[in-house]
Structure formats: C-alpha cells, structure tokens
Write a protein that binds this DNA or RNA. Sequence first.
DNA 1: CAGTATTGGCGAGTAGCACTATCCAATGTC
DNA 2: GACATTGGATAGTGCTACTCGCCAATACTG
Lengths: 205, 205
Amino acid sequence: MWMSELAARSGVPVPTVKYYLREGLLPPGEATGATRAIYSEDHVRRLRLIRALVEVGGLRLADVNRVLAAVDDSGTPLHEVLGVAQSAISPVGPSPSARSLERVDALIRRRRWRVAPDSVNRTVLARALDALDDADDALPDDALSGYAETVSGLAEVEVPTIDTTSSETAVRQTVLRTVLIEPVLLALRRMAHEHVSSRALRRRR
Amino acid sequence: MWMSELAARSGVPVPTVKYYLREGLLPPGEATGATRAIYSEDHVRRLRLIRALVEVGGLRLADVNRVLAAVDDSGTPLHEVLGVAQSAISPVGPSPSARSLERVDALIRRRRWRVAPDSVNRTVLARALDALDDADDALPDDALSGYAETVSGLAEVEVPTIDTTSSETAVRQTVLRTVLIEPVLLALRRMAHEHVSSRALRRRR
DNA sequence: CAGTATTGGCGAGTAGCACTATCCAATGTC
DNA sequence: GACATTGGATAGTGCTACTCGCCAATACTG
C-alpha cells in the first residue's frame, strides 16, 4: 500500500507518518522509484503500536524509540532488555532520600527479591515514598508490605503466561505488558475505589 | 517567612514560586506592604504537594490546579469530588471501541460494582484494552477478571483506612492516595516482575 | 500524450507547556 | 544614605510533537 492508505488504515495523518519515518520510529517502506514506496501490514501494526504506547502508555516518542529498539533487538538477553525498557519508561527526577531508599532495600531483603542494585525501580519507589511523606500521608511499613504481597501474587500469575518459545516474542510481550497492562490495573483500581467508597457512603447515610 | 525563605525551604526556585502564584497554584502570602508579603508553613506544604503531584504523579500543572481545587473545596460531596479529581487526572484521548466498552460494562455487571455510568474510568479502561488489541496481545476475559479480583481486595483494604472524621481530610486523602499510591504499586509490580522473570531465567539455564 | 493528482522527502513553522530571565519601583536593612 | 531584596509584570527559552508548505518526480486519466 502507499503512504496515504497506510495513514488511513492506521488512523495517523500523513504528515505524522512522515514525521515518524524521519524520527526512525517507523522503518522506511520499500522504494519502488525515486518518489514512491510501498508499505506493508507490518507498518500498520507498528503505527498502531506507537499510538498505543504514546496514548495509553503515556510514553514520549524518544522513549517509544528506545522501547521499540529493545523489542526489535533480539540479540540482547531478556532480563537486560527488561531493564533497558523499564529505565526507558521511568520518569527522571530528583534523587530519593536515603531513608526511603533504605526502606525499599529492607523490603527487597525481607521478600528475598532478586532485584538488580542499579534497577531504576528502587529509585522510583523510594521517590514515591518521599512524595507521600511530603504530602503528610506517609505509607506505613505494613501497608507497603501488603502491596508487595499483592503484586507478588500478580507477577507469579503474569510471568508464566509469557510466550517464551522465541526470545523475540518474549521480549515483545514483556515490554508491552509492562507498559500496557499498567493502565488497565490503575483503571480497575480506581473503579474498585469508586465502588467501595460509594458503598461505604450509602451505608453511612 | 519571605519568599526567598519559602523557596529555600521547599526546594523550588524563587521565579518558579512566583510563577505558581501567578497561575493560582499557590495562594498569595499575607501582604505587609506594597512590596512584601509573608508566607506560612502551609505554603511550604502546598509547594511540596505540588512538586509531588507533578514529579511523582506525573500531572500537568492544569491538572494539579483542578486536583487542588477539588481538595480545597470542602463543600462538594465526597464522591463527587472523587469523580472530578479522577477525571482531572485521566488522560484525554480517542474514544474507545464499542466492543471494549461492552467488555468493561460486562465486567462491572459481573462484579456488581457501583460505578457511575459517566465515570471516566470506564473509558480509560476500554481504551487500554483497545491498545492491547492493537498490540496483538489482547487481554483474555479471565485475566481481566483476575485483575479485577486483585484490585477489589486492594480497595477493600485501602478505603477503610481513609480518615472520614472530616470531609476535607477524606477528600484530601482519597485524591492524594489515588495519585501518589499508583506509582508505588507500579514500581512494586515492576520489581516483582524483575524478580520472577530473573528467577525463571536462572532456573532455565 | 497532455493535464492533473499524488508521492516521498525536506526545511521551516507552530502550539502547548513549564519554566526562566530581566526589569522595575518600592521597600527593608545595615 | 548605600545597598540588597521584594513583589509584580513582561518577555523569552527550551523542549516536544507535530503540521505546513514546497518541490520535482512520477502515476493515473481522458
């Protein structure tokens, strides 16, 4: 198909498709002359994936690029790609307090989690704890442990469903699920809160 | 304290404090003359809260404004403020497909959840499901139900810990926890994934 | 085969956001 | 009385993600 059809099929305007080509987010089509190129079904899928990562995952294009590069590069081992992808999609910010970082490390030790010492998640979690402190609504240790228990259960169910027949599909699934399942979880949690608190209010009145 | 001290105490540069004052994110200090005003401990807290919402919650200033307005306005009933706050912090985007929206509604019926028909969370969830479809990694119904079950458990634990003695504190806590606990959950889930998949890889080799 | 439309490629322009810098006169402070 | 600081206002900056306009080459149309 030509670019106009690609644009129509993917719902992305032609100028934006051109822009993505320039930025290297979308591989070039097969040139059939100096001023024409044909695009495949893969291009449609890639475009839809980019839109999903941006609109639902909330990623910036630079991060989309790094995630896609990690997904495409089947050479790097899975756990490394995961690290790259996770650091690519983690917001940068000020360093966390030593106190919160120690809480995080204590949790990791308590659960005997194998978490890389340079994992961005340690820092991100510590900063989130700092933010709760600043908002005068510090998260108690037992609540933190409870959340850890819950997500452990989630991960035990989620990870085995990853298709590891090929390392490519495994990487793809792992990275995409990290980014795309998170909004699902958050939306569900907000709905559950809506339900529980409206029920509590009804009961009280 | 004067503005320079407020800036030092909160870690926000003076020009930025001025900017927040102009944007109405920070209430003005008490004027002590034409060119001077004093600021209180409340201002420090408010500034730290703004930074937490922006840096950890990832909110834009316009959304911070709406969240703070909802938090400050103790007149509106709690469940309404919650709705306002949730719609304020939900990203806007294209409408979801009818198919995904129907899946969401079926889930709500199945769980007998009391979710407002105009709740943004219905749309947000449906769009997230669309994104997974687009990425060729559709979420099966039983997985969706599993997530719903998990977050129900979370909400049952979380909601009762909210201090409902005053509607002001209740609103404040509800909104802040929605925004600030989410990064905690996500970081924990990513760590749990890191753990489970590194364990799985080690076992395999 | 003439005329029109479309294409890929490129440089430049735009809109929104979150600051950041500069200036000013009016005050405090030493 | 010299000097620094303050609040207020205006303008400018850097970044991101597009969006526009233009062009020559090419494809379709009658």
